[in-house]
Design a protein around this nucleic acid. Structure first.
Lengths: 268, 268
DNA sequence: CGATCTGTTGATATCCTTCAATTTTGGTGG
DNA sequence: CCACCAAAATTGAAGGATATCAACAGATCG
């Protein structure tokens, strides 16, 4: 399971933004992460064109989804951080349409189909939390489309830095708007549809304006308000404000039925 | 339910790309669409900032997801066409982070939470097909990120036109690479992160090169091969090649269990 | 049948890319 | 610990793709 410094795993921290989890829920999630394995930096975990095998929980480190273009250029599609339970249902596809690679030494737990189905069928609250997490992922993708479609270079950089800080904060891995950021300027460029040269100039400008500090793989946002303004974005799209009350009640009701009929373990 | 000319609804046509549906499955899907309602062109179905109410099946017409920026510009996030069962689980969120608007007169069936849960819990094959459809939607989003991040204007336009034709073909709504296309050049621009002026110039170029015909809201791709080359894309990302055999067998097994225990209707 | 979108075209401006060096950093082995 | 090398960051100059501005023609619709 590999809990964080705080004791709670990143996955538990993240899903707790949706609903308070029971001890039993936490146990199930920790078991999901039990078989985690270490991967070195900059290796492919999943390769475009191959058949997907299983989903993963990322417990430590960082990874990215990416696509290579016919001319060899790369587009990074998104970043995966601790607490991300990604592609649970990917076994429904014949082939991957993109690759996934680590960006630093990273620990990942493989989650097989049977496990996914057991959790989703037997644990209403966790199933709802995973659905919510999938909705969040979609929202993150949409925000990226907005950034690439309609924001200039400064807006794109500001948005991405904010997002990474917001997401790390949501899993308790940020200290006062400062995070570990293992990305090179080439990777930022590939994520934002820009050139490394231009990324560099924007970062310089932000530094000179006292908006950020970024050195030796450590990022600190000194002026979140201004950065948000430049980005034209707020963290609302991460939907960290919990389930609607009515839904929370509904889920509790489902859980009580479950407890009544089969106490405290996953169904077969 | 409102079947298409062929007799099958667009939703059934789309999901059949994943797995062959039983008559009972088809009946359930048709019931989902039973309460469809007409909406005029260019009206909001869902508004950013409001609480989501329910998901929808789009049975006729066309709609788009979009975001408005602080400065009034717009980014279109994606297009919804007949057969799209979108946002089934959106009730898990407190507020919408984007809006959805019709682009032409459109028919939509609202799908409430209870209905979603009944179908997903009681119909393994349909549940799997809907999951697959969600994976397809994510892939479509990724393809858009690639287009906006790394393709020039010609590549973006070519990609979008191909995608719309591929998707319409998958629901049986295309005749020889020709489709109804209710989009203005402003809307194409808002979808592709370009200006209407530039969209116009690219379309002119494509017309002069004999690649496309586009007039009076009708699009025909005369040279799909070249367009794909310009787009640097193939339709692989739509995953229209059916479920992996092993998964198909697994789903059949689940269905047989279901039939044994509760014949032929949704569970309560 | 005017009013308003929509599409079209030309001229100019600009943001970002490209190309090319140079410096700095980080890692590795002697 | 230092020498060395490759990767990463940085800077400058020039070019190009797309935006912006402006004007007009054509289509659509109440």
């Amino acid at each position: 399971m590999k809990p964080q410094s705080g004791g709670r795993s990143a996955l538990v921290a993240k899903l707790s933004h949706f609903a308070a989890l029971s001890d039993a829920d936490v146990r199930v999630l920790d078991e999901l992460c039990a078989g985690e394995e270490p991967f070195p930096a900059r290796v492919d975990i999943v390769v475009e064109g191959t058949a997907p095998r299983a989903g993963f929980v990322l417990t430590q480190g960082m990874a990215c989804r990416y696509r290579l273009l016919p001319d060899g250029r790369r587009q990074i599609l998104g970043f995966l951080i601790p607490g991300d339970f990604f592609d649970p249902y990917v076994f429904l596809l014949r082939t991957m349409d993109h690759s996934i690679a680590t960006l630093m030494p990273t620990r990942l737990a493989r989650v097989e189909r049977e496990r996914v189905i057991a959790v989703f069928a037997g644990r209403p609250r966790l199933a709802a939390a995973c659905w919510w997490s999938a909705l969040q992922d979609e929202a993150i993708q949409r925000e990226r489309v907005v950034a690439l479609g309609r924001r200039d270079a400064r807006g794109r950089v500001a948005y991405l830095l904010c997002e990474l800080v917001w997401r790390q904060t949501a899993i308790g891995a940020s200290d006062d708007h400062a995070i570990r950021l293992p990305l090179t300027q080439v990777e930022l460029a590939d994520a934002l549809g820009l050139t490394p040269v231009h990324i560099n100039r924007v970062l310089q400008e932000f530094r000179k304006a006292g908006l950020i500090a970024l050195e030796r793989r450590r990022l600190r946002l000194h002026d979140m308000a201004t950065l948000q303004l430049i980005a034209g974005s707020s963290k609302a799209y991460l939907h960290l404000d919990g389930a609607p009350e009515e839904v929370a009640r509904y889920i509790d009701r489902l859980e009580r039925h479950r407890d009544g009929s089969a106490p405290d373990a996953e169904r077969p």
